[in-house]
Design a binder for these strands. Structure first.
Lengths: 211, 211
DNA sequence: ATTATCTATAGATCTATAGATAATGC
DNA sequence: ATTATCTATAGATCTATAGATAATGC
């Protein structure tokens, strides 16, 4: 799949702007209610775009919402990369990834609310946290830092646990989110075969800041 | 909430039959596509019930689908209880629960497909596997068999992991389901603080049969 | 000249209800 | 007499398209 070329002229830029407005509206709706039975009219109104323009860009509501999820996943992946750049130890990367995801529930609520509703079907996607985590799992397994039977099953456990943590934090915003995320990260490391003492130590390290 | 009394006369039995037909139709639809935008007409047809009868029992489609999920969760809980009756060790119960859930993807596909689509919001429900697992987590924590910071976070990780395993197995029916479930169960025990060797041994025990 | 957007609308579909019909209780 | 179910339908809503309008390319 070739990377879509950036718009070259006003026509393409205008077209891209309209499409983006629709995708942004769809993202808002996914984050707020997750109710995709909302009418196309409502989506177009929210995007401040003529009703007919919808069909200029998408064949169906499902196609738009699918793209909106992809869009959120890409942004999630870029945010994770910014933070994890320069962190090499797979165990540290996994623990940071879990803790950052929980923190992003506060800093990037739209993205994380979308993943809460739609993430389960993307745990083995090649976008978002998953491909990065899968790489870390394989690296850590090869170096002996992790011991588990199958990277795909480990990724499932990790992804499902992060989604359940999001569900918990976004559903009940009370309680200490960082503490909960730390407890989850520590459990993930133990699950992967990191000795308990070491798992705790790694999890207690300060989170890196972006960039 | 009082347990609904069993129907006493023909009127109530007939009413219960119609309601049950609607719930069963909703369960089928949830399992097949999970698409709740299907029309009430289609649901009534599938239930072989007059269209107007729907409003005799439910205010909205959402109310019906919510009840259908509850219904599936209750059946899931009863099935788990049948298998785990007589198993006392919390670690063994947790491992069996994970492996049984994966096996039920084959033996009880409707229930498990419903949970795949709707389970994330019920990880802390008082129906299904969750209340049983939470009890095991607390018992095991009290006896020192498990070591984790917070039973709610542990339940989130366990529930999210089981849902991700279901997603994996129901989405790609190839591969050895029992093997994947065993690998997942072993990781869950390690996550909870069971030593790796013991986690492996417990996971390798034969599953109990129902009753 | 070409292309995207916008407005207006035809036709399909869907919800909720009214009223008729059938079954049961007492 | 009471209650549930069923059929029929009014009114609302929604989708998809056609045709007009506006913006840009060449």
């Amino acid at each position: 799949m070739p990377m879509s070329a950036p718009p070259t002229n006003r026509f393409e830029r205008r077209r891209a702007t309209t499409r983006q407005a629709l995708v942004r509206a769809a993202r808002q709706i996914l984050a707020e209610s997750g109710d995709t039975s909302v009418s196309i009219q409502v989506i177009a109104d929210r995007a401040d775009v003529g009703f007919g323009s919808f069909y200029n860009h998408f064949d169906s509501k499902a196609a738009l919402f699918d793209e909106a999820v992809i869009d959120a996943l890409e942004e999630y992946g870029r945010a994770i990369d910014e933070f994890l750049d320069g962190v090499d130890d797979p165990a540290e990367r996994i623990a940071f990834g879990v803790r950052l995801s929980a923190r992003m529930a506060g800093t990037h609520p739209e993205i994380m609310r979308i993943l809460r509703h739609r993430g389960l079907g993307h745990i083995h996607s090649d976008r978002g946290l998953s491909p990065r985590a899968l790489n870390d799992l394989k690296t850590g397994s090869a170096s002996g830092r992790f011991t588990f039977a199958d990277p795909e099953i480990a990724l499932s456990a990790l992804g499902g646990s992060v989604l359940a943590l999001l569900e918990l934090r976004l559903g009940r915003p009370d309680g200490d989110s960082d503490e909960a995320a730390g407890a989850m990260a520590e459990m993930m490391l133990r699950m992967l075969g990191v000795p308990p003492g070491e798992a705790r130590e790694i999890t207690s390290r300060p989170l890196p800041s972006a960039g």
